[in-house]
């Protein structure tokens, strides 16, 4: 199977090339062939969020053509927003290639195969990207994948409202402000650092892992800005780190 790693250029643009490395490595470990776009309109799915929805819709067929020309069977993205845009906002745009999020890809492949993981004796807090968790309900897959890792202690965000109104961790997961990179750049590290300080540090975890590459970018900036000790990892990077091999 050919797997298009979709969002490669966006990850490069954000300076998180390690996400691309992990995505490629995982696709290889899972016995698939990674493919890439010949050319890419970086961050194109961001246009709608910025108020350029009409323009995004106009260029969508160009993006579809790019994806289909890659010869891939499926496009896998690390970005929650990309997943959301293709599966909700632009779902009416004809395309032959499905766009799924990397956590869905990992869940599907690892559940149907025999993965071997290294032990990971750490407390890991899971952060659901807003567009993936709150908006799209893709919440079981990342948890199921992390639960496959031996000795990994999965930790969830806490909020008094969870007991009072039954809200779930993905309902209350705090956004580190990744879009501020574009809209109000100087503010982003303050917001991300504050989320790490207020919402993450009290949970006493070793690692924060997020399902959104854009969120990862913001958390990384916040960690650096605030000199926070907690390790910050995009979920694909964490899984790649512990996944030794996969057999059928």
């Amino acid at each position: 199977m050919k797997v298009l790693i979709y969002g490669w250029g966006s990850a490069e643009h954000l300076g998180i090339t390690e996400v691309n490395d992990a995505m490629t490595s995982l696709v290889n470990k899972l016995g698939h062939e990674p493919v890439y776009l010949d050319d890419e309109v970086v961050c194109a799915e961001g246009l709608g969020a910025l108020g350029y929805g009409k323009q995004m819709r106009e260029i969508a067929p160009v993006l579809v053509k790019l994806m289909e020309n890659s010869g891939a069977d499926v496009a896998v993205t690390p970005f929650a927003a990309s997943y959301y845009v293709w599966n909700y906002t632009l779902k009416d745009i004809p395309r032959k290639i499905p766009v799924i999020h990397v956590v869905q890809y990992l869940h599907r492949e690892l559940s149907s195969k025999r993965p071997v993981f290294r032990e990971y004796e750490k407390r890991v807090l899971i952060h659901d990207g807003c567009r993936l968790g709150r908006y799209s309900g893709v919440v079981k897959e990342p948890r199921a994948v992390l639960k496959m890792v031996p000795k990994l202690k999965l930790v969830e965000f806490e909020h008094p409202d969870m007991e009072a109104r039954g809200t779930k961790p993905w309902d209350i997961a705090p956004c580190p402000g990744s879009w501020l990179e574009i809209t109000m750049n100087p503010l982003m590290p303050y917001v991300a650092d504050n989320v790490l300080r207020r919402d993450v540090e009290p949970l006493n975890v070793d690692v924060l892992t997020t399902t959104c590459a854009n969120g990862y970018h913001a958390f990384k900036a916040g960690k650096e800005f605030g000199h926070r000790d907690v390790e910050v990892k995009f979920i694909a990077n964490l899984v790649d780190e512990v996944l030794v091999e996969v057999s059928e």
Binding site: C130, R134, Y135, P174, C175, L180, T183, M184, L187
Partner: peptide
């Protein structure tokens, strides 16, 4: 400027 301060994360709606 306010419109572009919002993260569009949707926790307010919850």
């Amino acid at each position: 400027p306010e419109a572009y301060t919002c993260l569009r994360c949707g926790r307010c709606k919850v």
